[in-house]
Design a protein around this nucleic acid. Structure first.
Lengths: 115, 115
DNA sequence: TGAGTATATAAGCATATGCTTATATACTAA
DNA sequence: TTAGTATATAAGCATATGCTTATATACTCA
């Protein structure tokens, strides 16, 4: 472990707490390879819109994700420039990809495209 | 990420939850290089003995640590054979070592030795 | 402009968490 | 055996967490 990537126990636990929820952890894994908007998460996790928004807010508060409005929708993306991204990524790397969630969205015609 | 080390979201969050407490995360980092008994943790973390025991029980319940009685003391060690040890280790590897805690114990003459 | 859609926020509630104090158990040593 | 030390467990309590429902805000489109 190179010195530059050492993280304090306090900071690590703050991030681990954030990632220790199944919905948020899956969101982060998904966002690692796809941008998603809120309504897509609502469909993927079959969870209420406020519940999804509240999870995203927690991720946003620590700047793990970024939001960008595109017309009606707000798209979320992972923040690869986060100072502790290496730490977060090393956790996400142990998870199976979640591409099937995206494929199901596409199949249902619920994938949002903004171009 | 090799297939053999993929971990389910559910399992990952269970472990992350366990590691998202500063006391438990530090304990795991310490145990990675030193065996410790309960009274040493009480001294290191300046925390009550029941609080320490309860943290250790949580780590033990998921078999992240093992206990071994030696006379009056019960020593805890990290379980490197844990099925998800690679995952846990990849998190601990981002933390600075906690050897100063052990050195302070030695300096105060509170390090327990059993031979 | 007004209706509909997407998202955020606030308040409330049930459950989980991490400590406390009190007590039980297991071992050591006189 | 008895006192002392080390550890575990149980019950209780304050706070944190993750949902719910209700509502506010921002945008689109007719």
């Amino acid at each position: 472990m190179k010195t530059e990537s050492v993280i304090s126990v306090q900071r690590a636990t703050q991030l681990l707490k954030l990632l220790s929820d199944p919905t948020r952890l899956s969101m982060m894994k998904l966002l690692k390879s796809h941008e998603c908007c809120v309504c897509e998460f609502v469909e993927i996790f079959q969870m209420s819109q406020p519940a999804i928004s509240q999870h995203l807010r927690k991720l946003r508060d620590l700047e793990l994700v970024r939001e960008e409005r595109r017309g009606q929708w707000i798209f979320y993306s992972i923040n690869k420039k986060h100072i502790d991204y290496v730490f977060v990524e090393s956790i996400l790397n142990h998870l199976a990809d979640q591409d099937d969630s995206i494929q199901k969205l596409e199949a249902k015609g619920l994938r949002i495209r903004c171009e």
